[in-house]
Deep mutational scan, measured.
Amino acid sequence: MQNSHSGVNQLGGVFVNGRPLPDSTRQKIVELAHSGARPCDISRILQVSNGCVSKILGRYYETGSIRPRAIGGSKPRVATPEVVSKIAQYKRECPSIFAWEIRDRLLSEGVCTNDNIPSVSSINRVLRNLASEKQQMGADGMYDKLRMLNGQTGSWGTRPGWYPGTSVPGQPTQDGCQQQEGGGENTNSISSNGEDSDEAQMRLQLKRKLQRNRTSFTQEQIEALEKEFERTHYPDVFARERLAAKIDLPEARIQVWFSNRRAKWRREEKLRNQRRQASNTPSHIPISSSFSTSVYQPIPQPTTPVSSFTSGSMLGRTDTALTNTYSALPPMPSFTMANNLPMQPPVPSQTSSYSCMLPTSPSVNGRSYDTYTPPHMQTHMNSQPMGTSGTTSTGLISPGVSVPVQVPGSEPDMSQYWPRLQ
């Protein structure tokens, strides 16, 4: 039975679970980093996980050691009161100082060594604690504590007292930064006198190289990059290397530039699409467009005044059976039934097929058609009795279509119309 579990990581490298990497692998990681390889490249070359490479390099940059820390136990506290007071002093002298600059000053002034120097995250935590204590304490208590930490007896009751030896409130920041720059020169002199001055200088240079600022491109470089971006948004590694040799930039910087440029292009394309949609959409909808001609068919113009009344309900007709019959029939052209047409008796099958359309009241044959006459024609229609054979009435077949029909004066039988409509 094995005491430890061995495995293979996602890159194909072998590791022992819970145990640190061998010293030979750690040394190779540092050597590759000094030669300029990126952590992701080191991870692929040595088949070590990216997190492990970053952790080893980060500890090497901070402490200069590649040895693993002790497994188990607690780390001794490195942010001692003396170190905290120095950090507060540096922050007062130059409020814009960075944590890694404070760390360098602690090393250069001999406050800490490589073994007990606090990390950048520890210094940031100390600065946050100082800021929170400043908010919790009152103004007087804060000034007393700062005077105690600074070891001075001057008056701290006013704002300019934060910067000793100065009279203009805006000047101390520059003086403090100048003092810090002077301390940086002392850093070089002190570290050069040490035993491991060369190694420390190499480590600091490598650290500065990794902690780079934003790349500033010249106009020629920007023009070359934009020209390549117009050709393709995704250049391959050969195109990037050719462009890197042409404009004297690292291939990694060119790759990052193209990634950022593609993101910018997507944002601009989104804005262009929004403007295009806004320009195509009308600002207001016309009133006429809300009524579609496919839904509402136009009603033909009436030929006679009587045809303006298109349904039985508008003429005072309360018989719903006839109203439904007229509205359900398709529109037909106007025609006239003459008196000489043969009077065919209704076929029983045809009569039964339209039995649902006729009223059940037996008085329908005896009703006159003056009910369908509009009010303004009552006088004219009353002067001509319906009993004469020459009287013409208008029957409504569908809305908007008038059918003048000659009705025999002897017997106005409704059943004569249905064979004609089939």
Rank of each mutant, 00 (worst) to 15 (best):
E62G: 12
K145F: 08
R128F: 02
R38P: 05
V8M: 08
E31R: 12
R19N: 04
I71K: 06
D41Q: 06
K75L: 08
E133M: 13
N50R: 15
L46I: 11
E133P: 13
D115F: 12
L46M: 15
S85N: 08
V14K: 06
I123L: 05
C94R: 05
A139N: 12
E82I: 07
E93C: 15
G12T: 02
S6P: 13
H5I: 12
I56T: 03
M142G: 08
L11A: 05
Y90I: 05
N50S: 07
L107T: 08
G7N: 08
V53N: 02
D23N: 06
P20Y: 00
S121M: 04
R67F: 15
K145I: 06
D23L: 06
I97C: 07
T25L: 09
I56Y: 04
L21H: 05
G51P: 04
I117C: 08
C112Q: 06
C52V: 08
I71Y: 06
F15Y: 08
G18F: 01
A139K: 12
C52E: 02
I29G: 00
V14T: 07
M137R: 08
A33F: 10
P76C: 09
G12H: 03
K28V: 06
I71L: 07
F15W: 05
T113Y: 07
P76V: 09
Y60S: 01
K134R: 12
D41K: 14
T63W: 03
S74E: 02
R67Q: 12
T63H: 05
D115E: 11
G73S: 00
P68E: 00
R147A: 13
R77Q: 04
Q136W: 12
Y60Q: 00
S122L: 01
S24M: 13
M142E: 09
D41R: 14
K145W: 07
P118F: 02
L21P: 03
R103E: 05
D41L: 07
K86Q: 15
S132P: 12
W100Y: 10
H5M: 13
G64T: 00
T80I: 09
E93T: 14
S96R: 12
R38C: 01
V8Y: 08
L146R: 06
G51S: 04
S24L: 14
G12Y: 02
K91C: 04
V30E: 03
W100C: 07
I42L: 02
H5P: 13
K134T: 11
G138L: 12
Q47N: 05
I29Y: 02
Q10S: 09
M148Q: 08
